[in-house]
């Protein structure tokens, strides 16, 4: 079902752990749908003076795909400018992993959403304006979380 690269990232996840003094934290998913992801970023500056993701960590409660996608998403995000990181899509994550089973592709959305929410949190904490696109994304992500809670129900009523 899962390819070797996915299994490698699941069994030995990179960037897993806490970051107590994080500049931004993204918390997405919920226990009802089964996946909860916390993503932490530290923001620094590159030689050109642009803000970049200097360090990134994650903690995930979730299945193999949730853990593997969070790990590789942090790896992809590291070193990127905030603009580049915000532009990352779940397709980037899936491609980097060499594919996911169709039923698991939604897990990759969670990882990218967590990253966006961490950047959102950083900008908010800094008292900086939120780009219109990111504001819209944040609204969608919050809505998705609520919907996931509403959708889970037993087979038989």
């Amino acid at each position: 079902m899962y390819n070797q690269k996915v299994m490698d990232y699941f069994l030995k996840p990179i960037n897993m752990g806490d970051m107590p003094d994080a500049d931004g934290v993204g918390e997405v998913g919920n226990v009802v749908c089964g996946d909860v992801m916390h993503l932490f970023i530290r923001v620094g500056k590159n030689p050109a003076g642009k803000e970049v993701i200097a360090d990134v960590k994650f903690k995930t409660l979730g299945c193999v795909a949730a853990i593997a996608t969070s790990s590789i998403a942090t790896e992809l995000a590291k070193g990127k400018t905030l603009e580049q990181a915000m532009a990352m899509t779940n397709q980037d994550v899936v491609r980097e992993l060499g594919g996911l089973p169709p039923v698991k592709v939604h897990c990759s959305v969670l990882a990218v959403d967590a990253l966006k929410m961490a950047i959102y949190d950083y900008l908010k904490k800094q008292g900086r304006p939120i780009p219109e696109k990111l504001e819209k994304e944040a609204q969608r992500i919050r809505k998705d979380t609520e919907n996931a809670e509403a959708h889970t129900h037993p087979h038989v009523e």
Binding site: H106, P154, V156
Partner: peptide, 14 residues
Amino acid sequence: ACSSNTLEASHTMM
């Protein structure tokens, strides 16, 4: 649910 194609938790557990 993650192990099933429907992504729903086991009906027995619920």
